[in-house]
Amino acid sequence: MLSTKTMRVALLATASFGALAGVAFADGEVNIYSYRQPELIQPLLDEFTKETGIATNVLFLDKGLVERISAEGTNSPADVILTVDIGRLIEAKDGGVTQPVQNDIINKDIPAQYRDPAGDWFGLTTRGRVVYASKERVPETAITYEELSDPKWKNRICIRDGQHSYNIGLFASMIAHHGAEYTEKWLTGLKNNLVRKPDGNDRSQAKSIMSGECDIALGNTYYVGLMLTNDKDPEEKEWAAAIKVLFPNAADRGTHVNISGMALAKNAPNKDNAIKLMEFLSSGKAQEIYSEQVFEYPVLPGAKVSEVVASFGPIKPDPLPLVDIAANRKLASELVDKVGFNDGPTQ
């Protein structure tokens, strides 16, 4: 049975699609299918419309984007796909709902490691998969991912579901760097250092650190910014104030990052406007807006980060191409199950 939330999203998607279908072929518009929540991208779209006069229509889905576009076929009104996580971008390409873009402006702004070699998707912003550490109980100022399996952290680590895309991305990067055999042993060690079964989301890991349940956790950088500035739920400010951000492997290969990104839909009816939007989203101006709104790092070299993000300290991203990491996601998921990661510690 569908939950109330899922039903609401489905109804909204249906209503939005009806509106989109009526304007898909209108002049001066571009249609966006988005896994990113509308309020996060609206400031960007408002600025794009202000600069170009091109109106934007957004269909937000929390799942099933590829299946929807596939079902719509050549009549799909989708022009641009916006999403988070390299896995979902790869899923869109493999699902046959994107088309390649070869554009000098976009390629100049987005480094090669953050775009598909064939041009089927492009990264816009990055978020580091970092360690949240207790300011009171963790004196360390540096750490590596490899160290997380060290017995010194036994009963001190919290983490969300091992199969969540954020963690699968990190585990896939470990395979890319060290191989499957090493990563399996590492996952077993990490599992046995957990204080409990994987649970919650990234924000709740910070809450668990504040409460003293655990001392360190894995989380994305941008959640820290969202918590620090959350006036609606001020208790989250307390969670964020209790932790410090440690960037793993800062002294060697760098911190694992994932991306938000975009792709041109396969049957984009407003292709010219879609390309204009993609050019805008890759620009420094747009990426700085994103940085201020959702506390992520622009992929454009030299683009300014927000003051909140800068307060975490400098990030040195792992330079390994995301396509190389994504190639190991299936194996990473299999290893999570193989070691019983979500069962929690067994020693």
Rank of each mutant, 00 (worst) to 15 (best):
155 N>G: 15
17 F>T: 14
60 F>A: 13
138 V>D: 15
172 A>C: 07
32 I>W: 07
187 L>D: 05
159 I>S: 14
25 F>T: 09
28 G>S: 06
111 P>S: 08
94 D>Q: 13
314 P>T: 06
317 P>T: 04
171 F>V: 05
299 V>N: 11
268 A>G: 14
82 L>F: 13
293 Q>F: 14
253 R>Y: 07
11 L>P: 13
131 V>E: 11
274 A>Y: 09
24 A>Y: 00
191 K>Y: 07
300 L>G: 07
95 G>I: 10
110 I>N: 06
103 N>I: 01
54 I>C: 03
141 T>P: 15
153 W>M: 11
73 G>V: 01
334 E>I: 09
38 P>A: 00
75 N>K: 05
72 E>M: 04
114 Y>W: 09
138 V>W: 08
197 K>E: 07
337 D>Q: 15
339 V>G: 11
144 T>E: 07
66 V>A: 13
45 L>R: 08
120 D>E: 07
63 K>G: 10
224 V>Q: 10
320 L>E: 00
293 Q>K: 15
312 F>S: 06
47 E>F: 13
100 P>Y: 05
286 A>M: 03
285 K>D: 13
74 T>H: 05
6 T>Y: 11
149 S>D: 15
49 T>N: 10
37 Q>P: 14
33 Y>F: 02
14 T>D: 04
146 E>W: 11
135 K>L: 12
182 Y>V: 11
319 P>M: 14
158 C>F: 10
260 S>P: 10
322 L>D: 06
338 K>E: 01
29 E>T: 10
315 I>F: 01
303 A>Y: 04
249 N>I: 09
211 S>A: 12
144 T>G: 03
151 P>S: 11
262 M>K: 01
281 L>A: 07
311 S>M: 09
265 A>Y: 09
21 A>E: 02
181 E>R: 10
85 D>Q: 10
100 P>F: 00
311 S>E: 04
163 Q>C: 11
23 V>D: 13
119 G>K: 01
104 D>F: 14
211 S>T: 05
84 V>S: 06
251 A>H: 11
9 V>M: 08
55 A>V: 08
39 E>C: 12
326 A>N: 04
193 N>G: 00
127 R>W: 14
239 W>S: 00
328 N>V: 09
112 A>Q: 13
202 D>H: 13
89 L>T: 06
325 I>W: 01
211 S>I: 12
252 D>L: 06
278 M>E: 04
183 T>D: 05
124 L>W: 08
173 S>P: 14
277 L>D: 03
29 E>H: 04
295 F>I: 02
97 V>M: 10
81 I>Y: 06
79 D>A: 04
139 P>G: 01
90 I>D: 04
141 T>D: 07
214 C>Q: 13
347 Q>K: 08
266 K>H: 03
106 I>C: 03
289 I>Y: 13
192 N>Q: 05
81 I>D: 00
124 L>T: 09
130 V>Q: 02
13 A>G: 09
214 C>Y: 03
163 Q>S: 10
137 R>Y: 12
146 E>L: 00
293 Q>R: 14
130 V>I: 00
187 L>A: 12
155 N>M: 02
28 G>F: 03
228 L>Q: 00
243 I>P: 15
110 I>E: 02
315 I>Y: 02
50 K>N: 06
245 V>P: 15
197 K>I: 08
139 P>Q: 03
238 E>N: 01
107 N>K: 08
214 C>W: 07
173 S>Y: 11
196 R>F: 02
274 A>Q: 11
280 F>W: 01
163 Q>M: 10
208 S>M: 11
120 D>R: 01
272 D>R: 12
283 S>R: 03
340 G>Q: 03
